[in-house]
Amino acid sequence: MNDLGRRLARIAFDERGADILLMMAENQGNVGPVIISKGQDPGDARIDVPYQLVAILTNLLPFIGKAKVAILCRRCDEKALIELAKRGIVDDASMVRIGLACSKEQIQACRCSDCVPSKVDIGEAAEPCPEDALAIELGSMTIEQRAAFWMRQFRKCNKCFGCTLNCPVCFCDDCVLEERTYTPKEGIPPELAFHLIRSFHLADKCVECGECERSCPVDIPLLTLRKMVNRDMKNMFDYGSGDAEKKSPLLTTLDDQPLEDDGHAC
C-alpha cells in the first residue's frame, strides 16, 4: 500500500468510522475498483483514474447490507449520490464521502464547471473550466449544420451500451433502451431515438461526470450533448442536477407540487 492508500484508510476507518472503503487501486499493473475493510491491503491507491465509483456502488448495494461505506468522491460523484438519495436508491446517512478535488488536466478533459467537492480531503481545489467549446460552436451553427454534425457522430455508434452501463445515475433494473421496440436486436447503428431517449432520461439527473464520453469506444461527444440538455433544463426550470433541496421539475406539477410516483422509474 502506498502513502495515499494509508491516508485514505486512515480518513475512512479511523476518523469517520466507516466499515468498508471503495476506491481505485493498482494491483500488479492493473487499475481497478477495489473494496476493502480495515487492515486489508488492496495495492497502490490511485486517484488519477477518473472512474465512476458510484456506478460500482449501486451494483454492490444488495451485497453491502447495513455496512457503512466510505467512497472516494469527486464533485460529480457527490452530485450523483445526491440524485440517487433523492430517488431513494442509496441511503445518504450510511455513506462516508471522502472529498477528492480534481486535477487541472481532469477538469480540462471534462470541461467541468463545478469541480470542487463540498469538503476537500485529497488534492487541491483548482479553477473550474468556463464552458464547453464544442457546445458553444454547435450553438452558433445553423440547425442543418448541427443535424449534420450529430448524425455523423451517431452513425458511429455500435450499440455497446457502455454509456448506459457505466452511468452513475442510470439505476433502472429494466432499461427502456434494452426494449426491442426502441433498440431492435439486429443492426447498427441504432436509430437516432436511442440517443434522444437517453438524453431525455438523463435530463433531470445527469451530473456531467463524463463517464459516457470516456467509455464510448467510438468517441461520440456525449458529454457535450449532456451539457447542452442540462443548460436547457437550467434555462427552462432553473434546475440543476445534484441539488438536494430541489425536486426534479419532471416529477412535479406546474405549481411545484410533487406528482404521485416516487421517481424511481426512469
Partner: peptide
C-alpha cells in the same frame, strides 16, 4: 387530475432535445 401537468413539462424538454441535435 395532474396527467397533463406532466405532459406540459415533458414535451418542452423533448422539443429542446430535438433542437439540440438539429431537428426543427
Amino acid at each position: 387530475l395532474t396527467g397533463n401537468h406532466r405532459t406540459a413539462k415533458r414535451i418542452p424538454v423533448t422539443k429542446k432535445i430535438l433542437h439540440d441535435v438539429g431537428i426543427d
